[in-house]
Simulated assay, not measured.
Amino acid sequence: MRLAIAEINLQALAHNLAQVKRFAPGCKVMAVLKANAYGHGLVKIAQYLNDADAFAVARIDEALALRAGGLTKPIVLLEGFFHQDDLPILLANNFQTIIHDENQLATLENTSLDAPIACWLKVNTGMHRLGIAPSQFESFYSRLKASQNARDDIKLMTHFSCADDINDEKTAQQIALFNSLADGKNEQHCLANSAGIIAWPKGHGEWIRPGLMLYGVSPMLNGVGQQHGLEPVMRLTTRVIAIRDVDADQCVGYGGRWHSDKPTKLAVVAMGYGDGYPRHAEQGTPVVIKSQRYGIVGSVAMDMITVDIGDNRDNIKVGDEVIMWGPELPVEEIAQCATTIPYELLCNITPRVSYEYQE
């Protein structure tokens, strides 16, 4: 009997990419595949995003893994490069780089290359993480245009910090600042992440870069993917491995976090933080067994979770499937129960979980 499985629905992935294009018609799509495609499997996911115009990853090893997997689309390094020795690798593999600080620009300018590299100039408009200061923009832009190591079509980029909150004015301010800097520059623009794609159409530009929404998860505060016409790509399941009778006033699990107030039955399921399930999921966090919700009780352990099934012992058997999240149980809801975000849950799936790709 196979236990923890991440079922990956590739038809849902294709549907979500089509939905992205409906949100931003006419825009080119840079599909974000960093962190193992948000826990969904880097190369396999990329192979089913044929309608994307480019891929984006955080680091060069992710980009090399895509090339080794046979992917030929342009690949953008969202963190850029970090050493002069990286530049020949970028050139040989048709990788495009973000330029976000003086060290990167100076290294690019002072390296001998056989051909120019495609560059994206990233401006900090309010995220205060990566990106040049607005006051540096004219200088950086001019230097890139003058460098024989940078292709002439410099693309301009920024990143939103609060796009998931439609009531926060900061995104509109970031869009206005970016537009004021880019005005008069005949270059393509890329501003919108998933939340920007959904909620801020004035920030779409010529390129958009969907990440979380490709996987069917809402990037908006307190949102659920289905609200935006998205379909969950991952369905995380396991099995019941034991059923236990528990008397009244018994404590369950490490630390005795939960006490039974009456006689009940528990299903022990093969899932825990060793599989990537959040250890701090609160009491009552739902799972689905045979189309019915039941609540987790006790502490999430490395390999097991206990679920209060009440008097349903005759209905639930050892070997029955347990849905931890998926179309029937949004991962956004589980994230709220664990006081975290869906990104973390998806990215934390560990290697002992089996992946099954469904076309």
Rank of each mutant, 00 (worst) to 15 (best):
K185R: 09
D51Y: 00
D245A: 15
Q104V: 13
R22D: 05
I323E: 12
S260F: 00
Q104L: 14
E333Q: 14
V246L: 15
R293D: 11
R244C: 11
T72D: 05
G211W: 01
F81S: 15
R279W: 00
L221H: 11
Y48C: 06
G272K: 05
P342A: 01
G223E: 09
I305A: 09
L177G: 14
A24K: 06
L42Y: 13
T171D: 09
Y48R: 08
T107K: 08
S194E: 03
A118C: 08
G184D: 06
R257S: 15
L33M: 05
D168M: 05
Q174W: 09
R313Y: 06
P74Y: 00
Q96E: 13
R352S: 10
G26F: 01
I98M: 08
I305L: 09
E169H: 05
F23K: 02
E169M: 05
I197M: 07
E206C: 12
K28R: 09
E321R: 15
K202N: 06
C162R: 13
G205D: 03
G223R: 09
P263H: 01
N93D: 14
G253Q: 00
E359I: 07
L64N: 07
I208R: 13
P201C: 05
I89P: 12
A199S: 12
A115C: 10
L17R: 08
N167F: 07
D311C: 09
